[in-house]
Nucleic acid binder design. Sequence first.
DNA 1: TAGATTGTTAATCGATTAACAATC
DNA 2: TAGATTGTTAATCGATTAACAATC
Lengths: 221, 221
Amino acid sequence: MKSDKISEAVVRRLPVYLRYLNELHKREVATVSSQELGQRLDLNPAQIRKDLAYFGDFGRKGIGYDVIYLIEKIRQILKLDQQINVVLVGAGNLGHALSNYNAFLKDNMKIVAVFDAHTAKVGTRINNLTVLPMEELSDTIQKLSIRIGIITVPDIEAQNVADMLVAAGIEAILNFAPVILKAPSHIRIHTADFTTDLQSLAYYLDNGKEEMNNDTAEAGH
Amino acid sequence: MKSDKISEAVVRRLPVYLRYLNELHKREVATVSSQELGQRLDLNPAQIRKDLAYFGDFGRKGIGYDVIYLIEKIRQILKLDQQINVVLVGAGNLGHALSNYNAFLKDNMKIVAVFDAHTAKVGTRINNLTVLPMEELSDTIQKLSIRIGIITVPDIEAQNVADMLVAAGIEAILNFAPVILKAPSHIRIHTADFTTDLQSLAYYLDNGKEEMNNDTAEAGH
DNA sequence: TAGATTGTTAATCGATTAACAATC
DNA sequence: TAGATTGTTAATCGATTAACAATC
């Protein structure tokens, strides 16, 4: 296939493929079919073939996909064949948690600087990084060629931080504040919102299950 | 409208509406139109009207939606008119971060118990909760009528924890481990995966911008 | 050669958006 | 009455899935 506009849905599946392919590679599996992938990832095999075919002819008819080759190709597509530097703004609990995820972020993404607006936080250490004051944000982003920003500040501060990141030349933002950020259209923004996730889960709870537990069905309740 | 099968996309927008409506309410705005909502939330007004109309006739022609009434209705739809108890498994950094989000989770969702498999963690305090050992998981879920589980354990343990949660009668899971969990189909699972989020952001980075910064274009680099 | 599996086209399905009569 | 805005139908758009010729 090649060309055509690639939809966001397709792009968001690529990291999922990559993760499982890495696992297969670790297990020394050499080749995988779209059917196997689909089974494991709960996706339609045709969809997987189509997704991959947007970017090139990576498979071999009758054989499947070479695991190592496909890993290499997907990493290229996702631009993970180069190191991508990431800045984290907000050194609270969530910021701490994410900076530890560097383990997961192995695939060439690295948090290289942490910032916080509160003087109490500045100078403390997160993993092997010293928390810096916001005044140094712009300079640091430029000096370290940081391209992605993660926002883990309280929601009232999020838009302000986003503006600073954009002004400093960041290209994409992963936002954990429950807020809809405004930014120029060339800035890619993804908002990860636990609140929304949890509340929509609640919708699927099964009501009409008001049976009593026998062991608590005593008088006095 | 009413009836029809409600798609997940619709359900996932409801909490977004709710959040903004709460904000309007705090600002003492009495009424809002689908157009205003759409503008603020980056959504098509027709879509918002349609979403809401799945559940009832909440608006008034020529006027718009009564903010307080619509908040009440959406909370009912999402089952947030009753307290929903949540259990958190995994008392690491991310678990800590989430338990603080209780502030955000105000709308009747509450983390009422925290568990961890590591004896070092058991007995420590997270916010106002004592971390409990896994042996007590099932009993606690039953005693406290816990309906939703949040998984913040390392990925190798995630499936195991999910199985335990399911066995204990949980109805929905919010999973933060980068793993595709298997569970019976009546269990609702949502996986929130930072790795995937970040890697798909990388795709949108603009390559072909290798212009030199003037201020660093010196010899010796 | 027979079996497996891709890449791709065509068919289907579902979600978004436009348009407008109803009505406050 | 004139203006605004809903709820809903019809039109559009886009994404998923089925089917199959090509070919390893």
